[in-house]
Design a protein around this nucleic acid. Structure first.
Length: 733
DNA sequence: GGGCCCGCAGGG
DNA sequence: CCCTGCGGGCCC
């Protein structure tokens, strides 16, 4: 496949081999791609021998088996080797007009994923089967000759494919277009303006190149994590709540079941252990039909908002959906715009026009906190982002974790101040657009011009929580991730109003785990040690962590705990306090041990009363009363564990404190046995006890709302601007 | 394709 | 309880 010696004339008519400008008489024009080829530079085998041949001549690029973008007839496809089949199959998918982009993505995924992957509907052979690959005819060799960038002639990096079927590196293509050229460098066909201005990465080609590289470097171990499509299994049992929603499908649908077991405020990648269905976690490149589906897999939970986060806790994920024109996407890094600054009156959810300044508050502050802490932020890109080459063709795609290296405010395009964030990728898996088979390495920050005129610049001080470990060769938590402030229920995320219910249904074992788990092994502590910095561990775990006095336990990128070399420093795995002195003679926290043992001996099957299963966070003080408290707790006493341990058992860091505050404020003072359906509207004593068991119907709530609206509209009658909330209420009339 | 409208989740 | 939100389908 020595195609390097077979080159056509370029867009200027210059032969790319001899660099001369041949006259038309000295060229053959391909009947398929219309590219002119210099006769004297064509190999003799490629030259048409007769005049008739010349009229029906196909250039080397378009010769049947070689052309990267023409689907081969099945008869021919079936005759070539295994790796060829991959290329052929991908071509066939790409050129199948009957498939939409999402369907193509699914087919490509099936193609490249192991275990039951199918070549096509009528060919069951798994193309990953290496036995089918002819050694001296491997994929890379084939790809090398076929899909090179038409400009630099190398394997394309971030490949872009023109409608005429020629490939370019994204950068080469952009340079070409920037020179004002609007014809294909290979065949001179017109490049549509949409492609010229908004080229998209050809993800099928990315897969092919990456697989070829893996084949070549003999990397084994199953299918590469290149592109995953979520099968639509386990659709929510009860997805829709309104008649209007049932008709069209998704508008106004309530979101469906969450399939992963991470809490909603989980930071970082979603791991296999939190994916009970597929046991693989959320893979980079995974694509969903829309935000609702993306939500179901936990990558980005809000189904409208672009930022998931809490101002005092941090931001977990963002969506790039083209909602803000200031956004600037460079793939491995991008500039993100904060939320707000828009008038949402009139019952709007979004508004393209900005009408006031953004500030670092709410979700914008959450992002800033993630910046300061160096938390990993999951990033999803949506096809709705039209200006980015890195956006998926269809649906919503998970692109891995990024860190926010800096944030600032600047004057936005629309004339008002916007919050800005520099995101830089730091994932252990390669990005969906790169043919690289490895994840990110730490990279220097890009120079950002707009920083010159920026205000309120925040840069991270101190070490980031998520960072690259040279020893492990991967990104990992260097500081423990913040403890979740939210609850899970049966593996599903429990949100907002359902939270209180979940608290009541925690099993005794779960409570034990929640309150008395070792921060190393995550199981209920045995022989608990409480460090001077008030963190709790199993004695064995902590001592094991410093075996040889030169290691500390850290999380690996997969979330498992492992040992990390630490030059004779013995730091608390939770807060990095020096534990050298403490570890010389560590004493088991006997009080804590008594409590744990007592709780373990309780009948775990016994149905907990609401009060006894109330969050135990509120306990604070002494140890002596612990045993009594357990009894009291069993007797449904409200003050269970209230005067608990001398040292708060584990998770006593600020996140837990926040959690305690949260829990207390939202839950502690609520009446017992309040039916879950009677939510906010029945605050205090407004609902008589005998009515508590009944559901507040939607109609009733609306009536209430209407009454309230009447009140407020009386107070603010004839106000010109109808606010969204007012409008919303008006519509309930 | 753009405007309109809405349920819903979640922050505070 | 109120406000916010880079959705998504329908109608025109």
């Amino acid at each position: 496949m020595a195609h390097v010696s077979q080159l056509p004339c370029n867009g200027d008519g210059t032969c790319m081999i001899c660099k001369k400008n041949p006259s038309p008489d000295d060229t053959f024009t391909c009947r398929t791609c219309a590219t002119p080829w210099h006769v004297t530079c064509l190999s003799s085998s490629s030259c048409p021998q007769t005049l008739a041949d010349a009229l029906l001549w196909d250039c080397p690029d378009c010769s049947l088996a070689d052309h990267p973008h023409l689907p081969l007839p099945p008869s021919i496809a079936g005759k070539i080797g295994g790796s060829d089949k991959l290329v052929v199959a991908i071509r066939a998918i790409e050129s199948d007009d009957s498939l939409n982009e999402l369907e193509k993505a699914r087919r490509r995924q099936e193609l490249v994923s192991g275990g039951g992957a199918r070549l096509s509907d009528d060919d069951g052979e798994n193309v990953k089967n290496k036995e089918g690959i002819n050694g001296d005819n491997d994929v890379l060799a084939i790809l090398d000759g076929n899909i090179n960038c038409s400009i630099c002639m190398q394997l394309p990096e971030r490949p872009v494919t023109t409608p005429c079927g020629h490939n370019f590196c994204l950068k080469c293509f952009q340079k070409w277009v920037a020179q004002g050229k609007r014809t294909c460098a290979n065949c001179r066909n017109q490049i549509p303006s949409t492609v010229a201005s908004q080229p998209r990465i050809n993800s099928a080609l990315v897969i092919a190149i990456r697989m070829a590289k893996m084949e070549k470097s003999n990397i084994t171990g199953g299918a590469p994590k290149v592109y995953h499509f979520v099968h639509n299994q386990n659709r929510p049992d009860k997805a829709y709540t309104t008649e209007r929603a049932k008709k069209p499908g998704k508008a106004n649908a309530c979101s469906g079941k969450i399939f992963v077991t991470v809490p909603p405020d989980h930071f970082g990648p979603i791991l296999a252990e939190n994916d009970p269905q597929r046991k693989q976690g959320v893979l980079v490149g995974e694509t969903w039909q829309d935000r609702m589906e993306c939500r179901q897999w936990g990558a980005h939970l809000p189904h409208v908002a672009g930022i998931a986060g809490q101002s005092k806790y941090g931001a977990q994920s963002v969506a790039l959906s083209g909602g803000y024109i200031d956004d600037e996407d460079h793939g491995e890094w991008f500039l993100y715009t904060g939320s707000g600054g828009r008038d949402l009156s009139g019952n709007k959810r979004t508004n393209k026009a900005q009408s006031f300044d953004q500030k670092f508050e709410k979700l914008n502050e959450a992002l800033r906190l993630s910046c300061r802490k160096g938390y990993p932020v999951r990033v999803v890109r949506s096809h709705k982002e039209k200006r980015s080459s890195y956006a998926p063709e269809a649906g919503v795609r998970y692109d891995g974790v990024y860190r926010i290296e800096k944030c600032w405010r600047k004057n936005g395009i629309q004339g008002y101040k916007v919050c800005r964030y520099l995101f830089v990728r730091c994932d252990n898996d390669p990005a969906p657009w790169t043919s690289d088979i490895h994840g990110d390495q730490p990279r220097p920050l890009p120079a950002i011009k707009e920083l010159k005129n920026a205000i309120d610049i925040t840069e991270r001080k101190g070490s980031p929580s998520w960072d690259y470990d040279e020893v492990e060769g991967c990104w990992m938590w260097k500081n423990p991730p913040p403890c979740s402030r939210k609850q899970m229920n049966d593996g599903n995320i429990v949100s907002g109003k359902k939270r209180r219910r979940a608290k009541r249904t925690l099993s005794a074992r779960e409570k034990l785990l929640k309150e008395f788990s070792c921060q190393i092994c995550r199981d209920v502590m045995t022989s608990p040690l409480t460090t001077p910095c008030a963190h709790n561990f199993c004695k064995a775990c902590l001592e094991g962590a410093f075996a040889g006095q030169s290691f500390t336990r850290q999380r690996t990128c997969e979330g498992r705990r492992t040992l990390r070399a630490q030059k004779n420093i013995m730091k608390c795995p939770s807060c990095s306090n020096d534990l050298a002195e403490f570890l010389q003679n560590p004493q088991v926290n006997r009080e804590l041990m008594t409590v744990i043992e007592s709780l373990q001996h309780r009948n775990v099957g016994e149905e907990q009363s609401d009060e006894s299963s109330k969050e135990v966070d509120s306990r604070h003080e002494e140890t002596d009363a612990a045993a009594d408290d357990i009894e009291m707790s069993s007797a449904n006493n409200h003050n269970n564990l209230k005067s608990g341990m001398e040292v708060k058992p584990q998770r006593t860091d600020k996140f837990k404190s926040a959690s305690a505050r949260n829990g207390n404020s939202s839950c502690q003072a609520r009446p017992l046995l309040e039916p879950p359906d009677v939510e906010q509207g029945t605050k205090g004593g407004s609902v008589k006890p005998e009515n508590r068991g009944q559901q507040t119907s939607a109609a009733e709530r609306k009536l209430k709302q209407t009454k309230k609206r009447k009140k407020s509209s009386n107070a603010t009658s004839n106000v010109g601007v109808t606010t969204r909330s007012k409008r919303a209420k008006l519509t309930t009339r």
